[in-house]
Design a binder for these strands. Structure first.
Lengths: 244, 244
DNA sequence: CCACATAATGGTCAAAAAGACCACTTATGA
DNA sequence: TCATAAGTGGTCTTTTTGACCATTATGTGG
């Protein structure tokens, strides 16, 4: 998977007040990029190296350009930062208090993305202070209203993950039922019963067994499953609704 | 209830490309204002009298001003159009395709509002072609991407109404359980069982009996109930979640 | 004054789902 | 071989859902 962190166009991050060519002056995009690692929910944060906010942490983002849609802009920022494309990404909402950015009037449209560990492996190893995966529970002091944006994104994720099968976007393509359960436990901050969770999942016939098992584990190897978008669509047409 | 429909500042509706003083040039606000009347879910639409879109229907909206927050701007547009204040209002999302408005680049932030029949009585009687409550199922051909915005708002409302007690904002302060049921049936387009619906509602202890009954009805008078925000907050703190 | 229509209200009952808990299986490292 | 950690299957009770029937209250029209 391509990783272009070192080329991240920091001059376009919205913490920089200076706009680039073709930018829309008063409209920025911010991205809340969630990842799941070692049983913890993480968010990608950037640290400014230059400009008025040098040393400050922020959500990654940048200016909206004239020639791109807002969805396209969010995808561009994610790609520029991580090299990832075709990632689950969704608009959170716009943030537009008058004084959210000192000395200028900038409305930002926040997006959140869910990325798979297999896709961001390279980033995790990245050791500069510029970009870092941080525990969601342990973040504060971001610039502007980014703390609030994150809080909002987290709330939206917690709600959405219970009613739509988007959690799979945080797991590898092939995963075990226990991994899935641990994902939900981490996001929702609850403890679930293993057999019951397993039964619930299999009853909705949403997961496809890969016919493979875990390798090199110090215990009985678990069956690997995958999420099938087509099956989900078909179930939805029959009036199916995903729950927890 | 004050009603200032005739003073609605049509020149600031976003269908007019010309911006007003203090406006932000490329940012508009559009409002999806829902009402409930005679068992039908309605939306407030405006018809342009002048300008390039004369005769066209649109969602009400206008420019975002420099000195106001986006939430404040949405509230201002609602007030200018209907005279209503302190109405349930929430951001839907931003719409920002490059070509959503011909010949200019305008990002719009859509809001939706729920208004009570007792509040909009005066508007219903308003007979000009400028502003009209229209059946949600029967709307198409709005300008720009307003059809899509409406579709989005409707989907969001349908989802939200099932998981949060916001439906009450469409009913009078005092309402019967049947009115509430009919509201849900209209929004969700389903048929519900009366005794079961009643039991479900009373079991969550969210509604407060007013101690009054319906008057002048040609059948057994129903108890009137009201929604109590404080009770809801208290229940939420105990881990309560509203469902259907 | 008496049926009648309409809606409120109360009750039952079976099916389905949720949740708690126990028991056993399987693969690996010590 | 044995302890361990995780997979897997089972049971049981409680809750919830949904369907349906019965009764009660209130105004209307004959």
């Amino acid at each position: 998977m391509n990783n272009r962190v070192e080329e991240a166009p920091l001059t376009f991050i919205s913490g920089e007040i200076r706009t680039g060519p073709g930018a829309m002056q008063n409209l920025s995009i911010d991205c809340v990029i969630f990842g799941f690692h070692q049983g913890r929910l993480k968010v990608l944060c950037v640290k400014y190296a230059i400009g008025p906010h040098a040393g400050c942490w922020a959500l990654p983002g940048g200016w909206l350009h004239n020639a791109e849609s807002i969805d396209g802009s969010a995808a561009r920022h994610l790609r520029d930062l991580t090299g990832l494309e075709d990632i689950y990404m969704e608009q959170l909402q716009a943030f537009g208090s008058v004084d959210r950015v000192p000395d200028s009037r900038i409305v930002t449209i926040a997006y959140y993305a869910l990325v798979r560990p297999e896709d961001y492996e390279l980033i995790i190893g990245y050791t500069t202070t510029d970009v870092q995966w941080r525990d969601v529970d342990n973040i504060s002091g971001l610039i502007f209203d980014h703390d609030e944006i994150l809080r909002c994104a987290l709330q939206s994720l917690r709600h959405k993950v219970r009613h739509e099968p988007i959690g799979f976007n945080l797991l590898p393509k092939k995963f075990t039922l226990l991994q899935l359960q641990e994902l939900y436990e981490a996001i929702l901050n609850v403890k679930l019963d293993k057999p019951n969770f397993r039964r619930k999942m299999s009853k909705m016939k949403l997961l496809v067994p890969c016919g493979e098992k875990q390798q090199h584990v110090a215990h009985r190897a678990a069956e690997l499953y995958r999420f099938d978008e087509a099956i989900y669509q078909r179930l939805c047409e029959q009036g199916f609704t995903f729950e927890v």
